[in-house]
Amino acid sequence: MKLRVYAIAYLIFLYAPIILLPIFAFNDATIIAFPLSGFTTEWFAELTQNRALHAAVQNSLIIAVCTAVFATILGLCAARAGAMSDFPGKKGITGFIMLPLVLPEIIVAVALLVILRQVLGLSLGNWTIIMAHVLICTPFSIAILNGAFGALDPSMEEAALDLGESRWSAFRLVTLPLVMPGIISSMLISFTISLDEFIIAFFLTGSNPTMPVYIWGLLRFPKSLPVIMALGTILVALSVILLTIAEIFRRRGVRRAGGTDTGGFL
């Protein structure tokens, strides 16, 4: 089958760079080039001693966790509203909220930089990055949660109301458990996006860089490249694990709500 061969070749193209990561991360040479010279775990050991990197990772984790929580809260509101009655202008409003999905990130970055620095005169810090990341992660959260709410039979919540629950307790007892896998999936995806985001973070980062901004700095020093390879290997492994969990939860969510899987995060 020609198409299958093509699709597999395409997958190899997609994975080519990532496969190189572990190869060079364990390669006993400071230049990133073939031929390989030998096995070492030295680069990973170096990672554990880099104070600046630890601080950057810590920053990124704080930002990513906050982003995941806030983006998912906003996504929950929008997705729940999406599952309710239409009103005039609803499509336009939803489209506007989803806009960051197609907006070039540099536009978001400069717009926020201008308003925060030049107009409001605020100093940059982790919170400015969180605000921007929430903005760009909310559309992803909405897309995931729309799937969870869309698969939900609207009679479920009505049934709970009919059986004597209040609006809030019906949501808490029925809807929330049924969309919980979607919520977890949304948080993991937002976390991953935020952890990895560079273009905006580079503009809005304060005196303490985030992990991608720190990596960007390292890229200029050939000596530090093997360490980046080691770091990249860990990040890829982490991403794969998180995404696998997110995917499992997303599927479980669709199944639990009684729908059929239509695949994909988007």
Binding site: I18, F198, I215, L219, V236, L243, G264, F265
Partner: peptide
Amino acid sequence: ITIPFWTSYLIR
């Protein structure tokens, strides 16, 4: 297909 997309953009 989506996995590579979610792995560190800079490093990629």
